[in-house]
Structure formats: C-alpha cells, structure tokens
Design a protein around this nucleic acid. Sequence first.
DNA 1: TGGCCCATGTAATCTGTTACATGATTGT
DNA 2: ACAATCATGTAACAGATTACATGGGCCA
Lengths: 199, 199
Amino acid sequence: MNVKELCLGALTFGDASGYDLKKFFETTFSQFCSAGFGSIYPALAELTAEGLVSCEQHSQEGKPDRKLYHLTAAGRKVFLRALQAASPVHRVKSDFLLALYFAHLLPPAHLQSLIDGRIAELDRHMQLITESEAAPDTQRKYSAGSQFVRGYGKAVMRAARDYLCARRQTLITSARTVKSKPFKPALRNGASRAHHQQY
Amino acid sequence: MNVKELCLGALTFGDASGYDLKKFFETTFSQFCSAGFGSIYPALAELTAEGLVSCEQHSQEGKPDRKLYHLTAAGRKVFLRALQAASPVHRVKSDFLLALYFAHLLPPAHLQSLIDGRIAELDRHMQLITESEAAPDTQRKYSAGSQFVRGYGKAVMRAARDYLCARRQTLITSARTVKSKPFKPALRNGASRAHHQQY
DNA sequence: TGGCCCATGTAATCTGTTACATGATTGT
DNA sequence: ACAATCATGTAACAGATTACATGGGCCA
C-alpha cells in the first residue's frame, strides 16, 4: 500500500484536504503507516488526474484556500480491489531494538535513557488511543475495524511496556558485565579458510 | 539506520560475505529490519571504498567464490558513533492492520483468512525465536542484547496472537452487521462549506 | 517577537526493491 | 527433471524523505 492508496482509503470516510489527510494519518492511521506532505500532495494530484478523486477549491476567510478532495466511484472501486489484492505484510523497522541488540557496545546511561524514552513514548501513544476512544467525534471511530485496531495497539504496546519495565535493569547490568570480555566468533558456522591481520 | 550501517553492525560479530549477511538479517535481525541483495552488495562495495571494511576473496571447490568482509577499526568507530547518534525510531508498517481497519469493506471469509494467516505467521516466528535460543551456535546468541530482543519479540508477538484469537470472531460478526448501513461523515470536524454531487 | 497553526506545493536527494544475468552442486 | 542452496553483481525503477518556498492569523 502506497500513499496514493492510503489517501483513497482515508477518503472513504469523507472528503478531506491534503492537510486533513496528514492529520488523519498522524492520528488514526499512525499505528501502521505514516506519510508526509511531500508524498501526499503529489499523490492527490495524480489521483485527480486519474479520475479516482475529484477536487473542489474552497476559499476561506483569514486562512489559505483549501482543496477538498472527494472519492469518486472509480476511486472506491480501485481502493476495494487494492485492499483485497494486497499481501498483508506486517513489517517493523526499529532503530530502538537494533540499539538494544548492541547493548554490550553502549554505555549503561545511554541504554537507560533509550528504554525510559521508549516507555514514555508507549505511554503517550496508549494515552492517545484511550482519549480517541472516549472523545465523541465521527462515527468512523466506532467502526468494528477501528475499534479492533485500537484494541490491538493497546494490547501490543502494553505487552511491550511491561516487558521493558520488567527486564530493564537486567539488561543494563548484564550488558555492563559482558562488555568487559569482548568476543568475535565468525558469523557463519563453517570455519574460515583465511585469516585477517587486524584481529 | 540504513543498510550500510546495518552491515557494519553485523560485522561486529565476525567476518562475513554478502550472502551471509543476508541470512543474518533474515534470521537474527528480522524482528526489526530487512535488506535484500540489491542493497547489501552495493553497500559493501561503498563501505570498502570508504575503508570501513576490508575484503578478501576466497576460492572454494564446488561453490562460487566468496568475498569475506572484515570490519576495520575505522568501521567500528563509525558504527559506534552511528549507534549512539541515531534517534531510536520504532516504526510499524502494516497492510495487515490497514486491512483490518477497513473490516467493514471486506467479505467475512477474507477477514478470517487474513487473521488466521497472521496468527500462523506469528506462531512460526515465535517458534523460530525459541529454536534459535535452544540451538547452540555462536556466542553472540547469548549476548545480553540479543537475549533481550528475542524476549521482547516473543512477549509482543504473544500479546498480538492472544488478542487476535480473542477478538477474531467479534470482529468478523460485527463487521458484517456494520457493512449493511454505510456511513460517510466528513473527515474533519468543521462543517463542509460546499457539497458534492456524488453523495 | 517568536513560534505554532493553517495550507499548498516543488525539487533534489536518498534508499530500497525488483528484475535480470550467470552458473555449479546437491537433494527430491 | 526441477527446485533449492550457494554466490555475486548491475540497472531500472518506485517510493518516500527532506528541504525549500510562500504567507496570513493567532496566542503568549
């Protein structure tokens, strides 16, 4: 799913401007995707050219003009097709976990702030979900799918938070001890047939 | 963290070829990143040109030649610096969750296979982690960081699995009922100042 | 007065994916 | 006979990030 399809999907919930879509992605879709203006605006232009969305310009007092985009019948069809055709890949890209993997190379203080920061981030994110559940906004908030995904997010983040809290100290102390005795085994099982000078 | 830095990191555990690194990323690093040959080989070439890794060619009988890469002192320094400088972003990109968000637009059977498939994937992944913990391989497997990350993965995946199993039926049934009464509220709070024909 | 919100867009750059090209060996 | 493993690479392409450019209103 690229930004174009993401925009189509968001527009199934109603008309919106590029600016609105960015906000929407940041809040409602933030658990599983992200997109910046640099990809949203070109995407909307292309979708308009393809006839998958229509666009109306609106003048506002004291604010810049807005372009309100609307999903066309063709756009809806394309989105539904894409939704069913896409292989449901779930991918995590985390410099946080990468850093933790190399705990033995990091100062304990850095490790600590890394984990504490992540816990705070998780708390903030879970808080936002809870608030969005409480606040009466649009009907979309109560759709089965959105409820399910919010629940999923909370469950997974809660587990992450619990794990981080429980194992935090263990990691920091054991990383410190391991640090003193460095090891460098070969990455592969087969014995290396040549040797390097720098060892 | 890009592929170049990822390669440097992997090479802190010992010398390896591009092919080895791919395997390594697929197994050990799979929880938080991924990389294909198309990025690994160019990355290694660039790192060699920059003097961050050194390279030795090895002839093998019955197998293609291998280029064994070795982290230089400069490379190690660059990696440590990058590791501490990087903002520890944790990002999820999931067409699976996106699809579930639009449960009201999908046939129940499709929804079911989506969730069942994901559960199977989680089981497989958790199984792989458990196996890698049991199998005695290199010392790296027992480093504090790798243990921590494996535990994290298992905890989070377990929570995801539990949630999916518990709410699966609820989603499928309630998505079906919502489907019959479509709604289209505006995406933003402010009332729209113009109207479209296609409604 | 400084910074954030609203609002749209372009252009350069970075990064990674996909497909192609080659080729011997081993297992089913 | 066919697929998989081992092994390295290139080139075209897709996709997204980043920085830039513009400009009024609002709040502390």
